[in-house]
């Protein structure tokens, strides 16, 4: 029998929060099947970076990790564990020594890992081999603060929180540490193209208005969060006042009376009564969620079939990408 590391005893060991940062949230892949209760999806705002964090740890792709918004998180390990950080280029240090993102590291009990603030991009993911052992609510550990659901207490991380690590075999700690090749790492910029499927009330937007929408540049306003990104630019008006409240999908582009687009993301309200011109594809929602106030976006129309193709192409690329083994 191999020896289990921690967590088979009454006391639960894990990573302790020394500094919670601006907004650090427990997230798994999201909460599905609970719309009938009025619960939204939650889940990682940048699903690609989240994917790689878990992949580098050899985890299940729905394993629970931490989403760090803007930065400032500092954790101390209570046990030996293997972690990986991916996403926006936040300066990463372990015991004060600079380290690079997109690879896994062995943390010894007592080691401290810190994240500074990213010059570009806003979200990072910290995963641990085996995932954090958080009790799911409604089938998911995803934190949605507005609903007080998920995570440790339904809210963001605070000082002295302990993020319990799932018990893993000693041998797992000796596993090869891995990294994602530099040229495979996603790059973050201040400009993003959002491929958008025309849908919902699109027939209520005239051809000229659609042309304006797809040829204009929009800037991220000061209202950007996990619920949605409010953009600023040429006003897009439909011939509808409001609509009977209806379901809103991930990426839906809502246009309230002022004509300023709002792209709805993970923590969106499940139903609403504003008209929508279309929906941004999931890959591009992940890119949008890395932008901050003042960053630029453009919308580009795409057919439903093209969107499906891009989804599968991306998936097959991810599955074919091999991680590189590296030394501790």
């Amino acid at each position: 029998m191999e020896k289990l590391v921690a967590n088979n005893s009454a006391t639960t060991l894990g990573l302790v929060v020394n500094s919670a940062g601006v907004l650090s949230l427990i997230q798994d892949a999201g909460r599905f099947g609970a719309f009938n209760l009025g619960l939204t999806n939650g889940g990682p705002a940048d699903s690609l970076a989240f994917y790689w964090a878990n992949k580098l740890c050899g985890n299940d792709l729905n394993a629970t990790a931490i989403e760090i918004c803007l930065g400032g998180l500092q954790l101390t390990a209570q046990l030996d564990c293997v972690v990986a950080v991916t996403g926006a280029p936040m300066p990463l240090t372990i015991n004060g020594k600079a380290k690079s993102l997109w690879r896994s590291y062995l943390l010894k009990a007592g080691d401290t890992i810190s994240l500074g603030f990213a010059p570009v991009g806003v979200r990072c993911y910290l995963a641990v081999v085996g995932g954090f052992a958080i009790k799911p609510s409604f089938g998911s550990t995803a934190t949605v603060c507005r609903e007080s659901i998920g995570g440790l207490t339904g809210d963001k991380l605070v000082l002295n929180d302990v993020l319990p690590c799932i018990a893993i075999l000693k041998s797992a700690l000796k596993q090869e540490l891995r990294m994602l090749a530099t040229h495979q790492q996603p790059q973050y910029s201040n400009e993003v193209v959002l491929h958008t499927v025309l849908s919902y009330q699109q027939q209520h937007f005239s051809a000229i208005v659609k042309k304006l929408f797809f040829s204009s540049e929009y800037r991220v306003s000061k209202h950007w969060d996990r619920m949605g990104y409010r953009l600023q630019g040429p006003a897009i008006q439909s011939d509808l006042g409001g609509i009977l409240s209806e379901g809103i999908c991930y990426g839906a582009v809502q246009l309230p009376a002022d004509g300023q687009p709002i792209v709805l993301l993970n923590d969106r309200q499940t139903i609403g009564g504003y008209s929508k011109i279309g929906a941004v594809i999931s890959q591009d929602c992940a890119k949008l969620a890395q932008l901050r106030q003042g960053d630029k976006v453009r919308f580009e129309p795409i057919s439903m079939s093209q969107a499906g193709n891009l989804f599968h192409l991306n998936l097959s690329r991810l599955q074919q990408t091999k991680l590189i083994d590296c030394d501790g």
Binding site: F32, G33, L244, E246, C249, G308
Partner: peptide
């Protein structure tokens, strides 16, 4: 189908692309 959002006179049907 992953998820459904019924409302007054509509249903949003979210499906699994896989």
């Amino acid at each position: 189908v992953i998820d459904l959002i019924p409302s007054y006179a509509s249903i949003l049907v979210v499906f699994n692309l896989l």
